[in-house]
Amino acid sequence: MKMPGLTVPYFTQWETPAMTLPVLVDGPPALQHDPLWRNSGAKTIEEYVRGAGNLCGMACLKMILAARGELHPTLSLARACTTYGSYVVNELDASIKGLIYAPFVTFITERFGLEAEVMTNVETVAIPEFLSRRQFFMASVHHSIRWPEQEPASKGGHLVLVTAASSEAIRFHNPSGHDEASQASVTLSLVSFERFFANRGVAIGF
């Protein structure tokens, strides 16, 4: 089926796309072995390991900006986004809360001139209509969407970048896909996508 859409560069939330499975097996410490970590804009490997697990939203933003010819390191985007309150860092245990949508929208509209709006109570069948008004939809899904044949434990908690949709199918980039088939331009039926989709996200356009 035809799903028109922009050609959007793909990036994972870690600098080396093959790091997803090691992170799934060994947790964030596996990122200490990411040979490309400096490309993230992190000042230290510790900053990279601490932050990369929360960068699905920044990876989506990086892809959007790259689609219009701009390249920004993910950790640099995250630092700037944090100043707007989109991420909240617990100083006691260094845990990170976010992405928080409302301040994120303020961040990307003020810093990059993007058009954006928080969307809640979104029916999956309505996503094609959003994409007729905005080029992108950052959708909250369960991270196990990388294995669409599985039944998710819940919905939401991870962000993917929807780039095209029709009345039957949806196409997206997954910042934490574990192989080529689950990373760039993944296509699922709307019915399959709905099993993972938390009915919320951020619609974004140039």
Rank of each mutant, 00 (worst) to 15 (best):
Y48S: 04
Y48W: 05
Y48R: 04
A52L: 07
G53P: 05
L55C: 09
L55S: 10
C56L: 08
G57V: 00
M58C: 11
A59P: 01
A59D: 02
L61T: 05
L61S: 02
L61E: 01
K62Q: 15
K62G: 12
M63E: 14
L65S: 02
A66E: 01
G69R: 15
G69C: 14
G69P: 09
E70N: 05
E70H: 05
E70W: 09
L71S: 13
H72D: 00
H72T: 04
T74D: 06
T74G: 05
S76N: 01
S76F: 02
L77K: 13
A78W: 04
C81V: 02
T82M: 08
Y84I: 03
S86I: 00
Y87N: 06
N90V: 01
N90S: 05
L92Y: 05
G98D: 02
L99K: 00
Y101V: 03
F104P: 03
V105F: 04
T106I: 05
T106H: 08
T109A: 10
E110Q: 15
R111P: 04
R111S: 13
R111K: 15
F112R: 02
F112P: 00
L114F: 09
L114P: 09
A116T: 04
E117I: 10
E117L: 08
M119D: 01
M119Y: 09
T120V: 11
T120G: 03
T120W: 06
T120D: 07
N121E: 13
E123T: 08
E123W: 10
E123N: 14
T124C: 15
V125M: 14
V125G: 12
A126H: 13
A126R: 09
P128L: 07
F130V: 13
L131A: 14
L131G: 14
S132M: 15
R133H: 14
Q135P: 03
Q135F: 11
F137M: 02
M138Q: 12
A139S: 10
S140T: 08
V141H: 07
V141T: 10
S144V: 04
S144T: 11
R146F: 11
W147G: 00
P148M: 02
E149K: 03
Q150N: 04
Q150I: 05
E151G: 00
P152S: 14
P152W: 10
S154P: 00
S154N: 00
K155G: 01
K155R: 11
K155M: 01
G157R: 09
H158L: 12
V160P: 11
V162M: 06
T163K: 06
A164I: 04
A164V: 05
A165K: 07
S166V: 07
S166P: 03
S167C: 12
S167M: 12
S167A: 15
S167V: 11
A169Y: 08
A169N: 10
I170K: 14
I170M: 08
R171P: 00
H173K: 07
H173I: 09
N174S: 11
S176D: 08
E180F: 03
E180D: 11
A181P: 04
Q183M: 11
Q183H: 05
Q183C: 13
A184E: 06
L188C: 14
L188P: 15
S189T: 15
S189F: 06
S192I: 10
